[in-house]
Nucleic acid binder design. Structure first.
Length: 879
RNA sequence: GGGCAAGUGGCGGAAUGGUAUACGCGGUAGUCUCAAAAACUACUGGUCGCAAGGCCGUGUGGGUUCGACUCCCACUUUGCCCACCA
């Protein structure tokens, strides 16, 4: 037989086709015995196509899914497109197409690419968020929230991006800039739809303890929710009403030297006697957020920051000392956190310090510090210490006795305990076109009414003037046909809401829909949902820590409370993967270093790309994409091909399982003198050990997503096999020895999650070579739920991907000889080899080490104080 | 300013208290070839030495331990996330 060529293109095309025909990745959703919902974050098909970063993420998730399938689970791995939203709309605008037309083009391209990467997707259950069959239920969720009192339209200062011409959720503003375009975000007073996610703040925080997520994501989410416990303190003023401040540091109460109010505070509207300067200042602040000034901000220290303020002309009274405290209006005070008013303690707060320094306000120290920086106006002291200048609190140790201060103030009636959260309500409306229409109707008589559920979906019309207006009104407002409707309550003339939903609402529930795709009488099929949800394993990027992952948890909890779901966490297990970078930097369109997977799949094949990406580094850390390495991976797969292919050519009479032949009792008199076979047998025992070791290591690596080391172990196993073949082959005619087929089968099984095409092709070739002219037509058995698809010793004709994962035997890992490292005073000095069969005692090991010439020269004539022996590992003489 | 992660060969990385640098890339030499490519084989942390072998070596300084890349303390650098959160 002529050696065949590793032709990745033909092989991959063949199996893509076959797998789909045989439906091997479509579990029977109704009858599956061991449902395993393997989910990855679906992509937004905005631009030129699939990003290699997507391939990285999807491959990592798929490797895990394939492994779990081989472990006997009914793995469901769906894929879809998060196609609504500003991403997609901006791209359509850029290339001059209508978003609805462009969506179809992108969809085709994305699905083509997603077919190429070798994932075991169930292609019968795809979904797109812009499909009316899908967004009907997005609207349904909106209606349910509205009816539950969790959605409301209210006027509030909101984040406005003048470039994207829409409002943004708090989570989409990064350091005062638009997450999408980087423009400076302004504050505008607008009437907007909000979801009251803050009602769920405590549960969202507490339930983090009940889920198994990557630690950094839990931390990020906890910080974002930002719980802080403090006191609300009252100060009497000469403004007609007292003011309330929120503080987590009541211990610095005696250090208060001024009060600062946010310029956005409504209280200022009712105060009559504000100075002209103050009034002007308040007006000016209404227009723009005069705060963060971009990158400049990051470098400058607090002191140099451009905080501004103005004296209001009014005073507050310190409740204990009765001193007059000037009330300032200052832009460093945020309206939407705490009470919008703070007590100024310049000695012990960086921001108060900067403000006091700028406007020459008094600084009063109340915590003793060893440094003199406060007095010398260098910086505030925020550290620990004893209280001073604090009346009866003098000498209290902070922060250990902070609770005493809380109690004291509460008992005396100066304040009340209060818990604050950083989390704000979810601003859901967008003044754009390409999104889910908010299913609400405004009637002059009846106010806001939700669209009756039977009238859903409210279809997004194919509207030509879809460009954002920038006036705070969505483009759909121009479409009279869309706007004019009847009030669901009174039947009178009414107007539809023309804003659309934030894209993150689309993605906050898609995992609930996948198993029920095609089910059109309800948001999901209850029976199927009970069986398949919550999601068994979720893998995705950490960049969604406070966006998608938080919103999904919120929506799930709401649906749980409304009794639609019987679980309240959507993703009990989530793992974040790292970021794939290119030549040391982030991949981005502006840098022009975005890698398109197509060319690599074309040149090397999906198997090579998959293995290469997974080998780069730990999956949770990400990796650096460099062209040089991918060649090496291709070389490795070719070596696997050649190794297996050569084996197929060999005559079976050369075949032997040396382990068996060495273990089996050889009848006396028959070829006992054949030393070569005996020595082969010994070596094969080592190969057998290597195989067991590889299975053991790779199994645990896969479970922990350590794909880089799993691949390294496969390589080591292949190296061992090559070495063995070389050492047992007869040289002259280059006749290779044939291995027992379990070695090859195990290799293919281990390789299958990483290189699914190659493994499948070689698997088939192996079967065909064993079973001449039989069972050609019926190769791929339908998924066998009995779980006994064959063992390593029997023939089986089904897909390698449906074959049980190989097991290992710890007994096979024991070596006959083991090496003990000998140290003197912890320094490596030599090693001794012990035969396990000799049942050496600890003392004997020690004696053997002592007489070893390499070691004896270090201990000769010295007194040995101590001997440390770690069984089978190390021996240390302390002299 | 806060939080998190990480500093190991020429490079990506492995080793989580016990032989540091597995596996791969790159490099050097060789086999094959008219030649090249591919493939295969050997070597590849630094340094001294003809060699045997020695010494040094996981960001820096200290500590714990018979023994530290690994644990503790301090410092430092880099990356990521957040940031006027009172």
């Amino acid at each position: 037989m002529k050696p065949s060529k590793f032709d990745h293109k033909t092989i991959e095309a063949k199996w893509r086709d076959r797998w789909e025909k045989e439906k091997i990745y479509q579990p029977d959703l109704e009858n599956a015995k061991k449902p395993f919902y393997n989910l990855m974050m679906f992509p937004y098909p905005s631009a030129e196509g699939l990003h290699v970063g997507n391939v990285y993420a999807f491959t990592g998730a798929d490797v895990y899914g394939r492994f779990k399938r081989m472990e006997g689970n009914d793995v469901f791995e769906p894929i879809g497109l998060d196609g609504f939203g500003i991403h997609s709309e901006n791209y359509a605008l850029k290339i001059g197409k209508h978003p609805m037309d462009q969506a179809k083009i992108s969809e085709k391209n994305f699905y083509r690419q997603l077919h190429m990467i070798g994932n075991s997707f169930d292609w019968s259950k795809t979904l797109e968020t812009y499909d009316p069959d899908y967004y009907k239920w997005t609207q349904w969720i909106f209606v349910k929230l509205f009816k539950a009192g969790l959605a409301e339209k209210r006027k509030a200062p909101v984040n406005w991006c003048s470039s994207c011409k829409t409002v943004l959720a708090d989570e989409q503003v990064i350091s005062g800039e638009c997450e999408r375009c980087g423009s400076k975000v302004e504050t505008k007073e607008l009437e907007q739809w909000f979801f009251k996610i803050t009602d769920y703040a405590e549960r969202l925080l507490q339930d983090l303890k009940k889920i198994d997520w990557s630690e950094k994501v839990v931390v990020a989410q906890r910080n974002w929710i930002g719980k802080s416990e403090g006191l609300v303190l009252n100060f009497d003023t000469d403004m007609g009403s007292p003011v309330e401040v929120f503080t987590t540091r009541p211990d610095t109460f005696h250090g208060v030297t001024f009060i600062a109010i946010s310029p956005h505070h409504p209280l200022l509207n009712s105060v009559k006697s504000l100075s002209k300067d103050a009034l002007e200042y308040v007006e000016k602040s209404k227009v723009i957020r005069s705060t963060s000034s971009g990158q400049e901000n990051q470098k400058s220290k607090m002191e140099e920051k451009k905080v501004t303020g103005v004296f209001s002309g009014h005073y507050a009274i310190h409740p204990i000392t009765k001193k007059k405290l000037p009330i300032w209006i200052a832009d460093y005070v945020l309206m939407d956190y705490g009470t919008g008013i703070v007590m100024g303690v310049p000695a012990h707060d960086l921001r108060d310090f900067a403000f006091a320094k700028k406007y020459r306000l008094p600084i009063r120290e109340v915590i003793q510090s060893s440094k003199f920086k406060v007095q010398s106006l260098e910086e505030a002291y925020e550290g620990a210490g004893k209280l001073i200048n604090s009346g009866e609190w003098n000498g209290w140790e902070m922060p250990s006795e902070l609770e005493k201060v809380f109690d004291w103030l509460e008992e005396k009636g100066f304040g009340k305990r209060k818990t604050n959260y950083h989390l704000r309500d979810w601003l859901i409306s967008r003044q754009r076109y390409w999104g889910v229409p908010i299913p609400m109707v405004y009637c002059k008589k009846d106010g806001w009414q939700s669209v009756p559920e039977s009238d859903l979906p409210v279809l997004l019309p194919y509207f030509k003037d879809f460009k954002p207006l920038g006036t705070g009104v969505a483009p759909l407002a121009q479409d009279e046909e869309f706007v004019k409707t009847k009030c669901p309550k009174c039947g009178g003339q009414a107007d539809r809401e023309t804003d659309v939903c934030d894209t993150f609402l689309d993605s906050s529930w898609y995992f609930l829909r996948y198993p029920s795709v095609g089910f059109d009488t309800f948001i999901f099929d209850e029976k199927i949902t009970r069986k398949w949800l919550p999601v068994t394993s979720y893998i995705g990027g950490a960049e969604h820590s406070v966006l998608h992952l938080l919103y999904s948890r919120f929506i799930t909890k709401v649906l749980f409370d409304l009794k639609f779901l019987d679980f309240y966490e959507p993703f009990p297990k989530f793992r974040a993967h790292g970021l794939l970078i290119k030549d040391g930097g982030k991949m981005s369109k502006s840098k022009g270093n975005v890698v398109n997977p197509d060319e690599y799949i074309e040149k090397f094949g999906a198997d090579t790309l998959r293995c290469y990406l997974m080998f780069l580094g730990p999956f949770s850390e990400g990796g650096d994409f460099r062209d040089s390495g991918i060649e090496g991976m291709h070389r490795f797969l070719k070596r696997v091909w050649v190794l297996v292919d050569n084996q197929l050519d060999l005559k079976s009479d050369k075949e032997f399982d040396p382990v068996r032949s060495s273990l089996a009792k050889v009848p006396k008199g028959t070829r006992v003198s054949d030393t070569s076979e005996t020595s082969n047998g010994i070596e094969a025992k080592e190969l057998n050990r290597e195989m067991n070791r590889a299975v053991k290591e790779i199994t645990s690596d896969l479970e922990n997503l350590r794909y880089n080391t799993a691949i390294a172990h496969i390589m080591e196993y292949v190296n061992e096999m090559s070495k063995f073949i070389r050492s047992t082959s007869s040289g002259q005619e280059r006749q290779k020895s044939k291995l027992h087929h379990k070695y090859i089968k195990t290799l293919l099984l281990l390789l299958a999650p990483f290189a699914p095409f190659l493994a499948e092709e070689l698997w088939e070739m192996l079967q065909v070579s064993k079973v001449p002219k039989v069972s050609k037509g019926k190769r791929l058995a339908p998924p066998d739920t009995s779980g006994t698809l064959g063992t390593l010793d029997t023939l089986d004709t089904s897909s390698v991907h449906l074959h049980p994962w190989p097991s290992f035997d710890d007994n096979e890992l024991i070596e006959e000889n083991f090496v003990i490292v000998v140290q003197v005073n912890g320094k490596l000095r030599g090693s001794i080899t012990i035969d396990r069969k000799q049942l050496t005692s600890d003392k004997a090991v020690e004696e053997k080490a002592k007489v070893n010439p390499k070691i004896s020269k270090y201990i000769e004539g010295k007194q040995i104080k101590r001997v440390i022996y770690v069984k089978g590992k190390i021996l240390n003489f302390v002299i």
